[in-house]
Structure formats: C-alpha cells, structure tokens
Design a protein around this nucleic acid. Sequence first.
DNA 1: CTAGAACCTCACATCGGTGTCAGAGGCAAG
DNA 2: CTTGCCTCTGACACCGATGTGAGGTTCTAG
Lengths: 134, 134
Amino acid sequence: MRIGELSSRTGVSVRSLRYYEEQGILTSVRSAGGQRHYTEEHVDRVGFIRCLFAAGLSSRAVAELLPCADAPSDRTTGAALERMRNERDRLSDRIGELARARDRLDGLIAANEAYQSRTPSSRSRNSLRSTPPP
Amino acid sequence: MRIGELSSRTGVSVRSLRYYEEQGILTSVRSAGGQRHYTEEHVDRVGFIRCLFAAGLSSRAVAELLPCADAPSDRTTGAALERMRNERDRLSDRIGELARARDRLDGLIAANEAYQSRTPSSRSRNSLRSTPPP
DNA sequence: CTAGAACCTCACATCGGTGTCAGAGGCAAG
DNA sequence: CTTGCCTCTGACACCGATGTGAGGTTCTAG
C-alpha cells in the first residue's frame, strides 16, 4: 500500500509517517518512481510507535528500542535491554505522578461537591476555608 | 520572601515563576520598587502547580481550576466543577495509555530476557521470530 | 495520451514551558 | 554614598511532533 492508505488505516497523518521514516523508526520500500510502499506489518509498527509516543517516549527513545522490538536477537545488547527497563521504570514513575495529580483533583472535586450540596444559608460564612469543617 | 528564595525552596526556576504569574496561576505582592514578594502559602501553590503540570495539564487548564482549588465558594461554578471532572477523567485515560505502553515494554523485556537466557547454540536459528516458540 | 489524484522534497510555522542575555533598577551592608 | 547581589522587563532561542504550502513528479482511470 502507499502512504495515503497507511495514513488512513492508522489515523496518522502522511506528514507524520514521513517524519517517522526520517527518524529511522519506520521503514518503507520505494517504487521505481520513488514512492513509499508498505505492508500489513507496517500498520502494526505504526500502532506500536503511537503507543510509545502516547506514553511520552521520544522518537529517539523509540529508535533505540525498535531493534529489540522487531525480534530478540544477538543484536539485542544488554545495554538495549537496560534501556527498555529504564523506560519501563520511568513509565511507572510517571504513572505514579499522574495518579497523585488525579488524587489531588479528586480531593478538590469532593470538597467542592460537598460545599455545593450544603444549604445556601450555610455558605456565605466560610468562603475562605479550603476544606469543609468536620 | 522574594522570588529567588521561592525559587530555591520550590526548585522551580525564577523564569518559570514569573511565567506562572504571567499566566495568572501565581500571584505576588509587589514592593514599592516593583519586586515580587511571596508567603509560605505560595510555596504550596507552586507545588500544586507543578503537580498538575507533571500530570500534563497546561497552564490554561490550571488557570481554570485554581479558582476552585483556593476555596470552595460560590464562584465555583458548575462549569468549573465539570472541568475538574473532565481533567480527572482525562488523567485516568492517560494513566491507562501509559499502563498499556508499559505492558508492551514488559512483554518485550520478557521476550528478550528469555532469549538471552537460552543456550548460545539455540540462538542462531530463529532470529526473525518476534515471539519465542511454544 | 491526458486529466486528476496521489505522491515527492524542501522549507518555514506552530505550540508551551523554559533558558538565556541585555540593560536598567531595587535594596541592604559597609 | 558605594558596592555587590538580587530583581525587573523584554526579547529571542530552543525542543519535538506536526501543520502547511510551493513546485514538481508518479501513477492510474478514462
């Protein structure tokens, strides 16, 4: 398939697909006229890239992981394996950060909901408190 | 305290603190000469901002949430409450994304570890497989 | 063969948060 | 008052992924 079809099937813009190739994380076979051609496998590859991108990995980081992703092989150096572990740990940390932020938001939401459910007459007095009284 | 101290106490650069003020998410009281002065509360405020930033919220999003964060009050409109819920849900979705990516990384790591722990003689044959044989 | 759709490369623009620099002014200790 | 540190504003630069547009080429249907 050509780049337009890969784009519509993955939901990734043509521009981005070309960028991925430029960054060395997506390959293509060129036709005689220079047009890119892809196979079904590239659809999966793009999905994988998007997954890692969504997780906040940079194209450089993805480029370093892909040799291992394609197939475990002797080229999968210990260093690459360590990079994968590092990224995974970084992801875990990040998930923790997000969870903390979500908890803080939950606290705010609860406080505001509690406030709003009180009777109007009880409201006007304590508009400076950040938590409801016990 | 002045901006330098707030910076060193929060670990946030002076430049960023000024930027936060410019974005309306951090306040300060100016001295006669125009210098910013802060109180202890601002230390917490900066921490809160950093938490939300770390979670991927934009300064605009933070600006919309802060009126509710300071204190539940009548200014906390239903719309603002809804925005908070939206952000929280967005965060939950994002956490899911990260978790998915982490699982994929874990799969890769496991596959590569399994590969590497095999005997050297069994390696050379299947370097094109993406999963170990059953 | 021809028209039109799809594709090519190259280059510049965008966004948000931050770094950095220049030139000027505030403030406290000596 | 001077010295030295801190702060002020304003401007420009950066990063990474993507958008956008120009100008030219390839492919495919009729």
